[in-house]
Design a protein around this nucleic acid. Sequence first.
DNA 1: CGATTGCTTGATACCTCTCAACCCAGGTGG
DNA 2: CCACCTGGGTTGAGAGGTATCAAGCAATCG
Lengths: 234, 234
Amino acid sequence: MSTQFAVSSERAPSPAIAARGAWNALPTVGRYGPEGELSATGAVLSFAHDREIYGEGDEAELFFKVVSGVVRTCKFLSDGRRQIEAFHVAGDLFGFEAVEDYRLSAEAVSDCTVIAYRRKGVERLAAENEALSRQLFAYAMRGMTRAQDHSLLLGRKSALEKVAAFLLECAEHSSDIRSISLAMSRQDIADYLGLTIETVSRTLSQLERDGVIALPSAREIRFRNPTALRDLND
Amino acid sequence: MSTQFAVSSERAPSPAIAARGAWNALPTVGRYGPEGELSATGAVLSFAHDREIYGEGDEAELFFKVVSGVVRTCKFLSDGRRQIEAFHVAGDLFGFEAVEDYRLSAEAVSDCTVIAYRRKGVERLAAENEALSRQLFAYAMRGMTRAQDHSLLLGRKSALEKVAAFLLECAEHSSDIRSISLAMSRQDIADYLGLTIETVSRTLSQLERDGVIALPSAREIRFRNPTALRDLND
DNA sequence: CGATTGCTTGATACCTCTCAACCCAGGTGG
DNA sequence: CCACCTGGGTTGAGAGGTATCAAGCAATCG
């Protein structure tokens, strides 16, 4: 399943450790791309489905950009309850911290590849490079905005509204406007929306019964009545 | 009640408008203080209890720093449901946006005074002043962190855990380590925690019955067993 | 194949919401 | 001074939405 990945679940029992090994070989990020983007001078890493990329409390030496696949960042309570803060797709940055340690964990939702950048080098660079510092600032502001929108959803929306919002969010990233294929499990969706897997499943079934969506398979969703979904969203 | 404030609820029927008038007279923020803080060259504004400072969707020409009192920033759903994102106390920045318009509303929880800064001037300045841009970056990162912690609370904590977390958060800002006096109403607390006023009230009563807190009055809370509160928090 | 995993569905429990009454303090006006 | 009103807070009864527990199903894998 993950044979095309440098770090597969079989070859490297602990990709997190493997990655840590790779960190030492990482070049300092020293250039800034022509397009206003971080140039790809960081190390490319691959993670198999469900592997940890870093853990809450680990030293935040690196930050990442998604190349392919999906990454989730999340927090845990001591009894195991989990809240997924965000799903990150190709092009998204994650793991940039203002403090010493990571405040969230990051895990591979699907097999994925990311680029790792050394934080130190970038911070030095950002002090001189206005465009780069602007990009990092935009990252922080976007993160704040997303988390705030997410709070409104978690604090004040019903299960039906939450699922509708989630589907619309996925639709924005989808190539096909009429359908989406989910990279994440029901558990991931539940932990993103502050629900249980059963409630997510029941809500999707209800949307199907109501003719709003079709479910050709568990991970594929076709939109039959997008307007109904949007009406559920604010 | 608000006689010591320049903008009281009686003298100025619409302080938001009064503030808007003041905006035009605002000096551009042009200096940077010696302490690594924004110098107080912005206009000082006062708002009476429950007055709007700005609304979601307004043009975000200004951002603010709290001098005294408490400010809430929040979002609304179309049917009036409200989610309070944060309470801001003396020293806190709020209302700095990366985009054109405010993404949240800001309202005075208590009578309060704030300093308003022009965003444009600061952005220009930040490009040259590394310490200032670092401060704004820290603001964005703190906002992101706070919103993420808040998401875990909203998505995965019980009413009891939410209220406990809220009390501990208030305690951190309190001068007296053994008690707090709340600036906000039960409705504010409820909208911050994603609950109803009744549940907040009941939960506080329960904590009182259990000997964890005492409630000399509705807005004053004494801690009788802080450890029990902390045990409820992760 | 049998085992496993992810998902769905059903029955029931429980937590929080809703609706309502009530209390209390503070302000107002006769 | 007291009756009245108002707004914020508390409490109770009942409803409802979501969680929990459990069973079953389909696809995948060894």
